Simulated scan of single mutants.
Amino acid sequence: MTTTAASGICAGRVVIVTGAGRGLGRAHARAFAAEGARVVVNDLGAALDGSGASGDPAQDTVAEIRAAGGDAVAHGGDVATPEGAESLVRAAVEAYGRLDTLVNNAGFLRDRMLVNLDEDDWDAVLRVHLKGHFLPLKHAARHWRAAAKAGGAPHACVVNTSSGAGLAGSVGQGNYSAAKAGILGLTAVAAAELAPYGVRVNAIAPAARTRMTERTFAEAMAAPREGGFDAMAPENVSPLVVWLGSAASAGVTGRVFAAEGGRITVMEGWRPGPSADKGTRRSPAEAGDTALELLSRAEPPQPVYGAR
């Protein structure tokens, strides 16, 4: 296991992490606490498909943080409901008097090929991932806006969690891919809208070993570990999240970072490529000829995960 010495980069900050009872969220919560943050650990304790609820995962993470000398409280609300999201922000303020960083991470899977994907499975995944990002972000933003209008100077951060599936798509995960792509759009809008209040908003697209990725990354997880380094450990992603959630990342907003093992990549997203302007309307045949010519000069799209 690779470890690094704590620097206290988040000393005094109050951080919310959703879905922090397991996997990436748990790793993030522990990493923030190790760097001096006081952490609100949110987790509904649902099964992988979103069914059921239990307070144990959140309480377990809190217990681990406290055992290591950190400070944390648990929150078991459903962040995809207005009540749950509002109470989450309130929990941070009531426990610690402030909120500095929100890490949106909660989610689950209901994988199906499109022809077999039920509307309920579509709605459930969009709800927890996309709505579960929007609502905590909305209530945190209201808190920071009020602070700014009252004369404060928030140095607040939001870290949203997208995925390679949101960047490139993933076969059998139409609902998940759509939700994760939506999070990227939400991140861009939030970064622009919240900048006047001193709030920065970024997103990550992590690849790591969790309950949600066991099948997706089965081959990578089975690969030998060079020099004892477990490239798929969730803890590899957390240092970037901690930095983005700290005052040290001042000036960084509206960005998307891919993170896997020891690699960090700035994703550049949709940018204009080859273009042609006739100056007047084309016929369908002319439009097709132009499109084909432009495609011959364009970069090929990234392959969809799982495509043959």
Score class of each variant (00 low, 15 high):
M1H: 13
E35G: 10
V40Y: 03
V39G: 00
A31R: 05
V115H: 15
A287P: 04
E286C: 00
R263A: 14
G12H: 10
T61Y: 02
G164P: 04
D71C: 14
D121Q: 15
A156T: 04
A20Y: 06
G251R: 13
P196E: 03
T280P: 00
G164K: 13
A156C: 05
E268G: 04
A58I: 11
P136Y: 01
G279D: 02
L114V: 10
A233N: 10
S54I: 06
G261F: 03
E119M: 08
H143C: 06
K180M: 14
A37L: 05
L99T: 00
A150P: 01
A58V: 09
T253P: 08
P234K: 12
S170K: 11
G69M: 12
W122M: 06
G251Q: 03
A80Q: 00
V73W: 07
P272V: 11
E193F: 08
G172A: 05
L294G: 02
I204W: 05
H139G: 00
L117M: 09
A34V: 08
Q302I: 09
G166C: 07
S177D: 08
V266E: 13
N236D: 10
E94W: 02
G172Q: 07
V73R: 05
I204T: 11
D43E: 11
P239A: 03
T265E: 13
G166H: 12
P239C: 13
A47D: 15
F32E: 01
L44Y: 01
V40R: 02
E119G: 08
C10Y: 04
L137V: 09
R297N: 11
A47N: 15
L186H: 14
Q59S: 15
A248H: 10
T210S: 11
P274M: 07
R142F: 06
D118G: 15
S7N: 05
D118E: 15
M221W: 06
G182E: 04
R90E: 15
D123S: 15
A218L: 12
D289C: 08
D56L: 14
A141F: 01
V189W: 11
R145P: 02
G107W: 00
N236S: 07
A5S: 14
V159F: 10
P154R: 04
V62N: 02
P303Y: 03
F229T: 03
R66M: 09
V62E: 03
G50C: 10
L114P: 09
A37C: 09
A47L: 15
L109A: 06
S275T: 14
E226T: 11
M232A: 11
A140K: 04
V241P: 04
T161I: 01
R38H: 13
R308E: 12
F217S: 02
E35S: 11
E235H: 12
V15Y: 00
E64K: 05
G97N: 06
L184R: 14
A190E: 07
